[in-house]
């Protein structure tokens, strides 16, 4: 009898392990930091790209409306691809887009913007990449949709049609 119980327990245990692995296969393999924080680090102080003036991030994010933070660099190829979407967002919705220029050379960054157009309300500089980490970014490009100083949605990687539509919808729904 004792032996049978042992047998059943071991079989059940094997099945349990099987089940867990089976489920585990469905999970995504790569880890992406989903939204861990709803708050945006508003106390960060940045320098402006053009005149090097110090600006508090919190001052740029307006209350009671949407803003977008976009982390980009001139050396980053996907950033070029997503640039058109940022311009569109700027034109359609008149939202403030705050650009954070990530580990870039000033001259290259300015050239990039004059070539492709400037969607940004303000371009801030993150020379050593540490401020982006304080914002919870892992690289370029990343885009944060913020409403009322609260992080609504975080996009890691370049914007595309789907993400663009989602942003438009999120803004529309909120306004209605």
């Amino acid at each position: 009898m004792n032996k049978n119980i042992k047998f059943i327990i071991i079989i059940l245990f094997s099945l349990f392990v099987f089940f867990v692995f089976y489920k585990g296969l469905e999970k995504p393999k790569n880890y992406l930091p989903e939204k861990n924080l709803n708050k945006i680090e508003t106390s960060l102080v940045f320098k402006n790209l053009n005149d090097q003036k110090e600006i508090l991030l919190g001052d740029l994010i307006t209350n009671n409306s949407f803003s977008i933070i976009n982390i980009w660099a001139s050396w980053c190829l996907p950033c070029r691809d997503e640039h058109a979407y940022l311009l569109k967002l700027r034109n359609i919705n008149k939202i403030d887009i705050i650009g954070i220029n990530y580990k870039d050379k000033k001259s290259n960054a300015i050239e990039f913007l004059s070539d492709l157009g400037n969607p940004y309300h303000e371009v801030l500089v993150d020379l050593d990449g540490t401020k982006s980490i304080e914002l919870g970014a892992i690289g370029v490009p990343e885009t944060y949709l913020i409403n009322n100083k609260i992080l609504v949605k975080k996009y890691i990687g370049p914007l595309d049609d789907a993400k663009f539509k989602e942003i438009i919808n999120l803004i529309k729904n909120e306004k209605n």
Partner: peptide, 25 residues
């Protein structure tokens, strides 16, 4: 990586393990 491969090996492994356990008992 290909999930269908994972499922195959997993099922195969389960069969072998259950067989071994049963024979053992």
């Amino acid at each position: 990586n290909d999930p269908s491969r994972g499922i195959f090996i997993l099922c195969f492994l389960l069969v072998l393990v259950l067989l071994a356990i049963s024979i053992f008992f």
